[in-house]
Design a protein around this nucleic acid. Structure first.
Length: 157
DNA sequence: GCCAACGTTGGC
DNA sequence: GCCAACGTTGGC
């Protein structure tokens, strides 16, 4: 079982939208970056745990936890002419873009802000800080535990 | 709104 | 296959 960080702009899709979805399950689609695509297609597995990260907002940070309930499959939006994620070059015979389904596990009582993350020495090598633009990122077990610990201490405060 | 980082495109 | 131009991301 592996850990990941998925980015989303809360103005587009937030953890509250995920919470409001039926059974807290949603398709994580619209990823249009090859490195992220490869992870969704080849690496992300059912049962893997996800940090849901809110980007391009004030403040940015980890909003909660989700879990993969369906592993990589072709993103239908690439073939949908009405979708903003439509891709004219995508071929149904060899799909270009992939997505997964995830289910909300927990919304953190407080956002774990990017600012807080940057203060943690254990988290200094997070992909989030090293390669900030990648929208699907691996997270180590140690990094995962630290984020959870930060959330636990925030909920007691 | 600015700008650094970096991914993508397209001419050669 | 290189690389300049361009576009996007995302923190500040």
């Amino acid at each position: 079982m592996r850990h990941w960080l998925f980015k989303t702009e809360p103005g587009e899709y937030s953890i509250d939208d995920l919470a409001a979805a039926p059974q807290g399950i949603a398709r994580w689609d619209g990823i249009r970056n090859y490195q992220a695509r490869n992870l969704l297609r080849d690496e992300v597995q059912i049962g893997d745990q996800i940090l849901v990260y809110h980007s391009s907002c004030k403040p940015a940070g980890v909003a909660g936890i989700a879990q993969v309930v369906r592993s990589g499959y072709p993103d239908p939006a690439q073939f949908d002419l009405t979708s903003a994620y439509h891709d004219a070059k995508a071929d149904p015979q060899s799909p270009r873009w992939f997505c997964v389904d995830i289910r909300l596990v927990e919304k953190f009582p407080r956002l774990i802000t990017l600012q807080t993350i940057k203060k943690q020495a254990v988290l200094a090598n997070m992909t989030l800080l090293k390669q900030g633009r990648l929208s699907i990122q691996p997270v180590s077990a140690a990094q995962w535990r630290r984020i959870q610990a930060l959330s636990d201490s925030a909920s007691q405060a």
